[in-house]
Deep mutational scan, measured.
Amino acid sequence: LVRYRTISKIPQITLNFVDLKGDPFLASPTSDREIIAPKIKERTHNVTEKVTQVLSLGADVLPEYKLQAPRIHRWTILHYSPFKAVWDWLILLLVIYTAVFTPYSAAFLLKETEEGPPATECGYACQPLAVVDLIVDIMFIVDILINFRTTYVNANEEVVSHPGRIAVHYFKGWFLIDMVAAIPFDLLIFGSGSEELIGLLKTARLLRLVRVARKLDRYSEYGAAVLFLLMCTFALIAHWLACIWYAIGNMEQPHMDSRIGWLHNLGDQIGKPYNSSGLGGPSIKDKYVTALYFTFSSLTSVGFGNVSPNTNSEKIFSICVMLIGSLMYASIFGNVSAIIQRLYSGTARYHTQMLRVREFIRFHQIPNPLRQRLEEYFQHAWSYTNGIDMNAVLKGFPECLQADICLHLNRSLLQHCKPFRGATKGCLRALAMKFKTTHAPPGDTLVHAGDLLTALYFISRGSIEILRGDVVVAILGKNDIFGEPLNLYARPGKSNGDVRALTYCDLHKIHR
């Protein structure tokens, strides 16, 4: 019993810090008490220290592992850092350059016999395009090294910054494609005289377009951006097909006994025919423009016929181009109408809503002055909100995010209106959640004399007048207030005048 009563005193000691020596009952000389009392004092002292730490809000209350900052290894790049964003855009520009100039170089340097010394005699450094290609190869190699040090988000939505895990993730992902696209074939085969082989191998750079397509997928929600990307894709495919079309004609031209190829026909049409040795002929500019003209006309199913396939190889390629053109029509131009419709969806919704308003007016036989006010209010409210119901949009977000959005939407009023000066951010967040926005066209009466005042109004834009009878008592403008002081009276009061809008007004109100 003594032991039980001794232990039962522990909660009292913990909360009230009572010393055991003052209790005459606990001072009985028993061996059990002498053993338990020192333990009680020690526990009391420890609990006292913990309570003191909690009340003082000291940093040592938290466990040590929670006080440590997340460790980022040296030379690790955050995937959302500004440097990584700028670097990704730079790589994107280099990939676009590669997609345009690599097929052009591979096709127009394929057994090209233009006048001038061969590239091997001039030297590697004197070729501007080769120098640019070398810079692109170096940048792609540097990009691989950067990807080995860039964080990523795993399946659990955690940012991984450990170098080993980053390397394994990159090896399992895009490393092989990036490595093949970054191989400097110019340096590996330079001086061997195989410019045709170098041009063909350099087309491996186009593998990076797969990554670019995935990154550009984030802009699919913007109709104008999608339309622009589709047109660029169409032009890029036409450019690639033009390079292939020229390569076919250029390879067949020296081996044909009869002059029936499209390059021969082009030379005869523009007065620059090929001679018996295969030299001469149109310039590279004429060849490229004509090839691009043929691919565009074939892809769009126009086909004027002034550039036509004559050999079997050219006919087979033309059939493939027609098939590609039909697929592009289905996948690209078939979506253009939907994209344009999405661009004008706001206008369509406006006309639909206006039609419903006019049908309501016609069905209920609203008189002319009231009908005009109804239409003007709808037009003004639509121009202010673009038909978007803010309350319906915010309803799907958590309250903390709703408060931040409301604070942002009402920031101008909260910053410049005098009653809100000096208020804490928590108070402003709470008030912003209570605001209701209303609009009024010129001549609209917001409050009639004798109406119950259940709200306090803040003028965000425009001006109003307060009338008693036919006498203008006051004219209020931006950041002015009218209405009933909230919670100042037990019952809502009545208006002693009319409140009429002089201009288009936007008002925020808080109800009782």
Rank of each mutant, 00 (worst) to 15 (best):
Y65F: 06
Q68H: 13
Q68D: 05
P70I: 05
I72N: 03
W75N: 04
T76M: 08
H79Q: 02
Y80L: 06
F83C: 12
L93Q: 01
T102D: 02
Y104M: 01
S105R: 10
A125V: 07
L129S: 11
V136N: 15
N156C: 11
E158S: 09
V159R: 03
L176I: 14
I189K: 14
F190P: 14
G193N: 05
E196Q: 15
I198M: 07
A204R: 14
R205M: 01
L216S: 04
L216C: 09
Y219R: 08
Y222T: 05
A225C: 11
V226R: 11
L227P: 03
L229Q: 03
L230W: 09
L236S: 01
L236M: 09
L236C: 01
H239G: 01
L241H: 01
I244W: 01
W245V: 01
Y246Q: 01
A247K: 03
Q253W: 06
I260W: 01
G267D: 01
D268C: 04
Q269H: 01
G271W: 01
N275S: 09
N275V: 01
S277V: 05
G278H: 03
K285Q: 13
V289F: 01
T290P: 01
A291S: 04
F296Q: 01
S297G: 04
S297R: 01
T300M: 04
G303Q: 01
V307F: 01
S313E: 11
S313F: 04
E314D: 01
M322E: 01
L323A: 05
G325F: 01
S331M: 10
I332V: 10
V336D: 01
L343A: 12
L343P: 03
A348V: 13
Y350G: 01
Y350R: 04
H351E: 03
T352C: 09
F360N: 01
H364K: 01
H364L: 04
Q365M: 04
E376Y: 09
H380M: 04
W382I: 03
M390G: 05
P398W: 03
A403I: 01
I405H: 02
L409N: 09
L413K: 01
Q415D: 10
F420E: 01
F420P: 01
T424H: 09
K434H: 10
G443L: 03
